[in-house]
Design a binder for these strands. Structure first.
Lengths: 129, 129
DNA sequence: TGCGTTTCAGACATTCTGTCTTTAATCTAG
DNA sequence: CTAGATTAAAGACAGAATGTCTGAAACGCA
């Protein structure tokens, strides 16, 4: 009964992605990008999506200007972090460690990426001393 | 229109979690664990959940024995991997690197965990030489 | 003032999800 | 072998999520 809705839907994400790129945007701007050849119905769709993003606190709307301007309140990094924590909560008792292990062991990282990861760890060490 | 349903629902996950622990189980076993004081309706619910997990290829059902025995076909690690890749696909153009960066930078890892991560990287290095 | 744009409110069809009921099949104890 | 119990199978159901769309009201500007 108590379903847990997605934090952000894929369609909603397509909007967030634009907002991250543009810093801020009006409905019109978003529609022109997402539906270059769209009619008035897609306009309303984007509007509705923004409305929902707003009620989910992922977006703010500035009513002081006209037309209204929208802005993301959550950065891409933060959303990534939430998703990772979600996955950890559901599959690893909340621990993030297994996620890292999984990623490193996945063999999908290039040696360059592994190298830069090591360097990052070194940096952290330096800061801690 | 093309909604993308969750890979595995939270309720479905509660079942998968048991199957991972038990290796295999009958409906009855799962019900007794998940709904110790449940009636016949929860039994049917678990049944339906298993049925759906099966159609999603996350579970197999052995019809040769009676009662039927269910088994997870996907390990916890694999599911973690899929979720991570999903997140990467939706938020990082498919690259896993940003996920690691995010995790390491999240400050939610203990020094012990960071240490063991470093050791793991060392191991990988050894194997590659 | 009139017209085009924007905002707002809400309807709508689908699908998902968890739950439940009912009926048929199967096993087992006596 | 039969009755009682357990399991399997099929499907109904309500509530919510989702993406889309319609229509009317509000607004700014030529």
């Amino acid at each position: 009964m108590a379903r847990t809705p997605q934090d952000v839907t894929e369609t909603e994400l397509s909007i967030l992605n634009q907002l991250w790129d543009l810093e801020s945007a009006t409905v019109r701007q978003l529609v022109d990008i997402l539906h270059p050849d769209g009619g008035s119905s897609e306009y309303a769709t984007v509007q509705k999506l923004l409305e929902r993003l707003q009620s989910k606190k992922y977006v703010t709307r500035n009513r002081d200007v006209w037309p209204h301007v929208f802005e993301a309140t959550v950065g891409r990094d933060e959303l990534i972090g939430r998703r990772l924590q979600n996955t950890a909560d559901q599959l690893c008792n909340g621990s993030l460690q297994p996620l890292i292990t999984n990623l490193v062991r996945s063999k999908k990282l290039s040696t360059d990426e592994l190298q830069s990861l090591r360097e990052y760890l070194d940096e952290l060490d330096d800061q801690n001393t």
